[in-house]
């Protein structure tokens, strides 16, 4: 464990907490893409499938973190699609999720480390996570704005994988450890946030709201 990965995981936890708080406090999921949250839930379940296959004692934090990610993302989907369904902005959340899931699944079968079920699921989860934020970014471009709290959520969510890139550089240099598939997907994922990061740094930090077109 290094500082980059620690802050990456904390940033990811913060993102999940910010979104849950936003929906719970405002009792509304306006401006939140339900499809992105569904895709994240699929990512966690397919990536941490080992939790279900052979039960492992929850002694180490990693298992606890995996359970937190899975339960929090499923609970977020429950809030969006059931509890606060009336506030779900379905007609703006219109990016076809199939256009993300099918290519990720196909690519996972073509480019992977080992052709076995668990490995394919892990690879699918990595590829899907790289593009899972697109429906959310698409929704913001359709509505033309993002609530400040949603911007903070996106900043934390984008920073998590950006910090993981620093973690991978660190591990390559000090531990001679590489995970090529995760690195390539993580770079693609972070690049997708660049436009948002620019808007966040130039606007939200100064107390303005993000309004598109910028």
């Amino acid at each position: 464990m290094n500082i980059f990965r620690l802050f990456g995981d904390l940033s990811h936890l913060a993102a999940i907490a910010i979104l849950l708080l936003k929906i719970w406090k405002t009792r509304s999921c306006a401006g939140v893409s339900g499809k992105t949250q569904l895709l994240f839930a699929v990512c966690f379940i397919t990536r941490y499938i080992d939790l279900f296959l052979h039960f492992v004692s929850l002694y180490n934090t990693e298992k606890v973190m995996k359970l937190i990610y899975i339960s929090a993302s499923v609970f977020t989907c429950y809030l969006i699609f059931f509890k606060f369904k009336a506030t779900y902005d379905g007609n703006h959340d219109s990016m076809r999720a199939e256009f993300l899931i099918v290519p990720a699944a196909g690519l996972a079968c073509l480019i992977n480390t080992k052709f076995d079920a668990i490995e394919i699921l892990w690879t699918f989860s990595i590829y899907l996570e790289a593009v899972a934020i697109l429906p959310q970014l698409f929704l913001i471009s359709k509505t033309g704005e993002a609530e400040t709290i949603t911007s903070h959520y996106l900043f934390a969510q984008g920073s998590y994988r950006a910090l993981y890139i620093l973690n991978w550089i660190y591990r390559y240099h000090y531990e001679s450890h590489v995970d090529t598939i995760a690195i390539v997907a993580g770079v693609v994922q972070t690049i997708l946030y660049c436009d948002f990061f620019y808007l966040y740094i130039t606007k939200v930090v100064k107390g303005q709201k993000i309004v598109l077109p910028a």
Binding site: R5, D9, Y69, W122, S176
Partner: peptide
């Protein structure tokens, strides 16, 4: 020697 593909991260 590079250690490749141990998915030991979240």
């Amino acid at each position: 020697k590079l250690i490749e593909g141990q998915h030991d991260e979240l």
